[in-house]
Simulated scan of single mutants.
Amino acid sequence: MIEVELRLDREPYESLVKTVLAWTGPDTLTTRNYEQIALQLTGHTRAVAADVRRRSDQLSKNSGPRALADVVLREAEGQLSATIEGTVRCVQNRARLVRVLYERLDRLNAELTRSKRTCPD
């Protein structure tokens, strides 16, 4: 119930995702630092995934956006089950998950807004 009341603080994580995905060249942080960043992104990914699930559950079971959300959530859960490694590659994979889930969340929110306009209560 608590999760329903909390809004995600999106901006800092979007900034982190953008920074992490811009990394190129040799690893410059310690393994432990990469692990900590991956853990932060993992926790946030799970929170965004829960938000995506709540939004998709508001759509009809036959809707295309809900089906796409289900696919994205299954893929995200599969990737989150992988062991965290203290590497740039691992951190960037977690960052991509955050980005994809936010994109799906935005599309679900748009769909919910559109459906409320066309089917008022």
Rank of each mutant, 00 (worst) to 15 (best):
M1V: 15
I2H: 09
V4P: 01
V4E: 11
L8Y: 04
L8F: 03
L8P: 02
D9I: 00
D9S: 03
Y13N: 05
S15E: 07
S15H: 03
S15D: 08
S15A: 15
L16M: 12
V17G: 09
V17S: 08
L21Q: 05
A22E: 11
T24P: 02
G25F: 03
P26A: 10
D27I: 01
D27Q: 14
D27V: 07
R32K: 09
R32Y: 06
N33F: 03
N33Q: 15
N33E: 15
Y34Q: 08
Y34H: 14
E35D: 03
I37D: 01
A38Q: 01
L39V: 13
L39S: 11
Q40E: 03
T42W: 02
G43K: 00
V48D: 06
A49S: 07
A49W: 05
A50S: 08
A50N: 05
V52N: 02
R53W: 07
R54L: 14
R54I: 09
D57V: 01
D57F: 05
Q58L: 13
Q58K: 10
L59W: 11
K61T: 14
S63D: 03
G64C: 04
P65H: 05
A67L: 08
A67F: 04
A67Y: 03
A67M: 09
L68C: 06
A69V: 13
A69F: 14
A69W: 13
D70C: 01
V72G: 10
L73Y: 06
R74W: 08
A76Y: 05
G78S: 08
Q79L: 14
L80C: 03
L80H: 06
S81C: 01
A82E: 11
I84Y: 00
E85C: 01
E85V: 04
E85S: 07
G86R: 01
V88I: 12
R89M: 07
R89Q: 12
C90T: 13
C90Q: 08
V91P: 00
Q92K: 03
N93D: 08
N93H: 02
R94W: 06
R94Y: 10
A95P: 00
R96A: 11
V98W: 07
L101R: 03
Y102C: 02
Y102R: 02
Y102H: 09
Y102P: 02
R104S: 15
L105P: 00
L105W: 11
D106S: 11
R107N: 13
N109I: 11
A110K: 12
A110I: 12
A110F: 14
T113H: 10
T113D: 13
K116Q: 10
R117C: 02
T118D: 07
C119A: 14
C119V: 13
C119Y: 08
D121A: 02
D121S: 00
